[in-house]
Each structure stands twice: as structure tokens, then as C-alpha cells.
Design a protein around this nucleic acid. Structure first.
Lengths: 333, 333
DNA sequence: GATTTAATTGAAAACGTTTTCAATTTGCCG
DNA sequence: CGGCAAATTGAAAACGTTTTCAATTAAATC
């Protein structure tokens, strides 16, 4: 039905050259006489020829497409990373196949395999937890995979993150220094290394340095949602917490609103500091103080790293830690 | 270097059948004897054979990949649509190539063409404005394209939206009925049909029904950003507006915060109603009343529509209007 | 059992490029 | 103007599937 698709063969015939030559001009190969190049270009223009990327991918074994696995684009944190990824991907002429995994390990594995079957040139993976099974899958392919905003305790894959331990430690220390004896640690699932191994560690270290005993009643493991946050006020009060280090902005926004709704003034009666510095921090009142992460850059750097890997260029640093900061806003004193 | 890739030919040889047969079992073709099917399946398992989707795409002229063009995934509105799209895409075994266009017409055209060269089976387009140039590009391909949350006055492409005119009209009427004589219309760029042709029309109709003359001093054309919203309070006061119909949630949040910061009580002194019902509406204080749009569903339905188009199934309704609603929260009386 | 029919199979031609390698031109030099 | 190196070209083989069509085999019928 669609016999009107123009192939490289058509332009070769029309320009009375070989397919090879057409291929060369299309790919900007230098070894073609200017005159013929022009001739071919003219025919291409005239016939409105568009190279078929699928055929190209088959022949060259490169698809200029990378896979991106993300828990949920609807989450600002990941959306920002994804944006950074797409921008540098575009810059390097790649496209992105974006898939939502809902942090579901089975889904992640499944989608990883469809991406590989689609012959993506590389993958950037964002996820809260790298299960052993997933790590195995990572190992059996030689398609480069980089982790963005996602930690793997085993460190088998290149990754781009911030130093979560140090960041949390620093912030909790600040909270303590300001007089908070009981600061809560409100986080997402602890079986996620980023929470259970890194942030929690920072929290504990800060306590230790301050000589405050660790009390597990002060750690609240949640599902990272706004709604859950709104419900936390009673529990937080029950343990006499006067501040909270929160690992997710929406969750933190929920907590703050829950506090306000219960007439607990933030930051006077309760300080909260969050972790992702998404634009939500500015939109909520009081504005939330936050650890700042260069979200966009984490994605961008991860993708840049991936391009190097895909080109077999040497990379100096396999596990990149980008600088973090603290943005003091209104939810802390 | 990677000679270890297993092809259909390898499994054919190992199972002593032809490639055709292997292809049949891989594709679940019924015409293969159970015994041979098992034999082949075993070899596939043993060799860990994974079909190469690129080769498949070339041979079958189907890539099971669809393109998604979006202004910015970082925008909750579009992220929600994108999520709906991806979910039903996955459901129908498609993957999504996601590209951010920044609503830049040139970029849109460029990316459209790379998507087509990658032989996507279909495209869902989200964008604020369909330029003539873009429409031309749409027309010259026979790859199905559906618009999601995006209007085209010409109506050449299938689309999924809500009835923006009616929704805005209804809400503005409510505002007026509640006693607001001067309600502002704060929107994104008016050259975008959704604002300039639809929402503004609804606004005008509501005024007309109420016998209020249209005053263009009350319409504020913005860039749809939070920041701009925060700066609008003086201008709004200057024209004696007592309420605003806003076309974007972040923009609306900005306005509300700007009001609060200037001690203009919302909703007592100033009512605001927004348009997209993203989760931001709940996170901000006061919570924003909003026109509700089934964001996820718009994406989902658009993708579903696209699957039908890609299968040449008949579609009853080319321009779908999903139901909208009103969620009364705290930013209106 | 001999036919006829239906179900399984396989051979080989696409699909639209890239890429290798050899062939042909061209440009230079003495 | 002959000869040689360098620059251009083209022929044809991949790339890994699907798909058509004919061939083969199994099942059914009488």
C-alpha cells in the first residue's frame, strides 16, 4: 500500500551512483567528490528521501536510542532527571525510550529486557533499589548502563549521585545544633539503599557526633507520598519530635500541611527539612528548606557519562558525586 | 567482538528446524506442531535467545514503538498525560520514545521527523499550538498522529481533550454569580488556541451571559510559570479584580502566594480558580479550587485511540471530549 | 489402502541500510 | 606522456528477522 517510500536505492538510481555513495553522503563521509555530493544531495532533496533508521540500525548495530527506566515520571524528582537526560541525549543525537517501572522489580527486569531487545545503545536506570536479580541482569548484557540518582551498594555500575550520607548528616547536625533534641527521620522504604543504607547512616552519624542516642521510634518509614505525610502529625507529636529530616519533597509538603492543619507552627514548633529541592519547595507555604541536589544535572551528567561509555571513551570517574548544598527557606529556623 | 549474540538461525540449527519455524513459535503462530514448538522453546531457553527487535522491525515494518512529543515532562500536567500514555502503551506492548519540545515549533518539526525516520508506528502529540508548518508535516505522513490535551482549530488530527470553552464558561459564571464583578482571566500565551480560541471564548461567553462588558485590561497573558504568577498581585489589584480564572496550576499557585505575601486573603479578598487539577492544587495552602480534568485518562484514551488507528480499526469518535468537573477547594468561596 | 484435505514445515526472497574490498578515476611528477 | 599514489566509486555481502509459496507430512474419508 505504501509503495511511495523512497529508499536509498531510488536516489542511487536517480543520481546514477551506487547505494554506497548515497550512503556516504547521507552519513557525511568525507570521501566523496564535491560534485557527486551535490548531485546526490539534489536528488535527495527532490525525492524527499528520509533514511530509514531501522534499517540503519540493523546494518550498523547502532540505534542512536537509549533506554530510560524511571519509577514514575509523574514524580518531580524523576521528571527533572529525565529532562536532564533527554536534553543531553538530544545534544548527542540520541532519542530516549522512557518507561515507568513503579519501582517494581519484576517490571524493571521485564522492561530492561525489552529495551535490550530493541537494541538500545545504552540505558540510564533510575530506581530506588537494585535487587540481586536486577543486578544479575545488568551484568549479563554488555550494553552500558548507568545509574542516575540511584545507588547500588555493590557499585557494579557507573552512577551519578550526591553524597547522601554527608548531606543528611550535615543537615541533621544543623537541626541538632539549633537545639532540637529529638529530630525525626521520615523516609521512604528502608529497604531502598538510598534510605536504609545512606541517608539513615548520615542521620545516625549526626546523632552520634552530638552524643544523642539513636531511638528507632524517631524513624518513620513511609511510602513517600504526600498523603501519608499529611497523616503523620499525631505520630510525630507522640514521640516529642521537634524537627524532621524528610527524604522526599511531596512527603515533606504533606507533613508541613499536616502540622499547619493541626496548628503546629512551622518552623516555630516544628522544623522540617526536605531532600530533593524540587520546585515544590518554593510553592508551598512556608517554603521548605531543603538539601539541594542538582537534579537536572544528575540526569545530564549521567547521560553524558553514558555517551562516553557507548563510544568506548575512557571515563575517569565511574561513580560521580555531584555537589549538594543547603537551601535555607522558611521551614527551618 | 560480540560474536556471542544468538540469532534465530542458531536456534533453528540447534533445533534442526527452519528459521521460519522458529519465527513462528516466537510469534505464537498457531500453525506449529506442539512437539516441535516444545523442541524449539527448549532450545530458545537453552541458548537464551532474544529476538532482535530491530531486525524484526525491518522485516515486518512494525516497530511496536510510538513517539510522544511533549513540551516539557517536568510540567505536571504533561507528566500526567505522559504517564497515562505510557501505561496503555505498555498494555498494548508498545514502547514510547519521549521527546521534549519546549513548545518550540522548529524543534517539534525536527523531532517529528526523527521519530518518523525511526519508523514509529504512531505518534501522540502534546503541544500548545499547532502551526501551519507543523500541520503540513502532520499531513504528509500516513503514520497516525493523535493530539492529547492539545487542540487544533482545523481539527485535522484525532484528539482527546475536554470542552475547554464550556469548562471555563461554567467556572467564570460561578465566580460572577458569587458576586465578582471583575474577574480576571490569567492565561498562557494567547496565540495558543487552547487559550486564545477556547478558554478565552468561554470567559467571554460567561461575561456576556451576565451582561458584563468585556474589558481586555482584565486579561493577563503570561508565560505560564509559577514565578510570573507571584509577580501578578499588583497588576491584578490595579484593575480592581476580585477573582481570577487561571489556566495553569503553577501559575495559579504563584498568584495565590503572591496574594498571601501581599496580605490579600484568598479567598476572602480574592478568589482564584485554576484549570488543570494537578496534585499541586492539594499541596498549596489554601488548596486551589480547580476545573478537574482527567489528566491521566486524556493520555490513556489518546494512546488507546492511537492503537486503534495503528491497527486500522474503525474509530467512532475522532475528536474525543472527556468529561470535566469542578473541584471546590479553599481558594474560592 | 488409496485419495483427498488439512496441517506443518522449509527455502528463499524481501526489508533498507552500512561496510568491506576491489576496481576505477584522478592528480602528480619527472 | 607513462607510471604511481591517492582519491572516488561500486558490487555485493552482511545485519536478523518476517513472510510467501511450495513442498512435505499427517489426518480423514470411503
Amino acid at each position: 500500500m505504501d509503495k511511495q517510500t523512497i529508499t536509498i536505492y531510488d536516489v542511487a538510481r536517480e543520481a546514477s551512483v551506487s547505494m554506497a555513495t548515497v550512503s556516504r553522503v547521507v552519513n557525511g563521509n568525507a570521501n566523496v567528490k564535491p560534485a557527486t555530493r551535490k548531485k546526490v544531495l539534489d536528488v535527495i532533496e527532490k525525492l524527499d528521501y528520509r533514511p530509514n533508521a531501522v534499517a540503519r540500525g540493523l546494518a550498523s548495530k547502532k540505534t542512536t536510542t537509549v533506554g530510560v527506566i524511571v519509577p514514575d515520571v509523574t514524580n518531580m524528582y524523576f521528571a527533572s532527571l529525565a529532562r536532564g537526560i533527554d536534553d543531553v541525549a538530544t545534544m548527542y543525537k540520541y532519542n530516549i525510550i522512557l518507561t515507568n517501572s513503579d519501582s517494581n522489580s519484576e517490571k524493571e527486569i521485564k522492561v530492561l529486557n525489552t529495551l535490550l531487545s530493541k537494541q538500545v545503545d545504552g540505558i540510564v536506570f533510575m530506581g530506588n533499589e537494585i535487587t540481586d536479580k536486577l543486578r544479575e541482569e545488568f551484568k549479563r548484557t554488555k550494553t552500558p548502563i548507568v545509574l542516575a540518582g540511584s545507588v547500588d551498594d555493590e557499585g557494579t555500575n557507573p552512577s551519578v549521585n550526591i553524597d547522601y550520607v554527608a548531606a543528611v548528616q550535615e543537615e541533621v547536625k544543623n537541626l541538632i545544633d539549633r537545639g532540637n533534641k529529638r529530630v525525626a527521620f521520615v523516609c521512604g522504604p528502608l529497604d531502598q539503599a538510598i534510605n536504609g543504607k545512606y541517608r539513615l547512616k548520615g542521620y545516625k552519624q549526626a546523632l552520634k557526633s552530638a552524643g544523642i542516642p539513636y531511638d528507632d521510634k524517631l524513624v518513620f518509614e513511609t511510602d513517600d507520598t504526600y498523603k501519608t505525610g499529611t497523616l503523620l502529625q499525631p505520630a510525630l507529636m507522640a514521640v516529642n519530635a521537634t524537627a524532621a529530616m524528610v527524604t522526599d519533597d511531596e512527603l515533606a509538603a504533606g507533613i508541613m500541611n499536616g502540622m499547619s492543619d493541626a496548628d503546629v507552627a512551622v518552623p516555630d514548633k516544628f522544623e522540617v527539612i526536605t531532600s530533593n529541592d524540587t520546585k515544590l519547595t518554593e510553592m508551598v507555604r512556608p517554603k521548605m528548606s531543603s538539601i539541594t541536589q542538582p537534579l537536572y544535572d544528575i540526569g545530564a551528567v549521567a547521560m553524558r557519562l553514558l555517551t562516553k561509555l557507548m563510544n568506548n571513551e575512557p571515563v575517569d570517574e565511574k561513580n560521580v558525586l555531584l555537589p549538594y548544598g543547603l537551601m535555607k527557606r522558611e521551614s527551618t529556623k
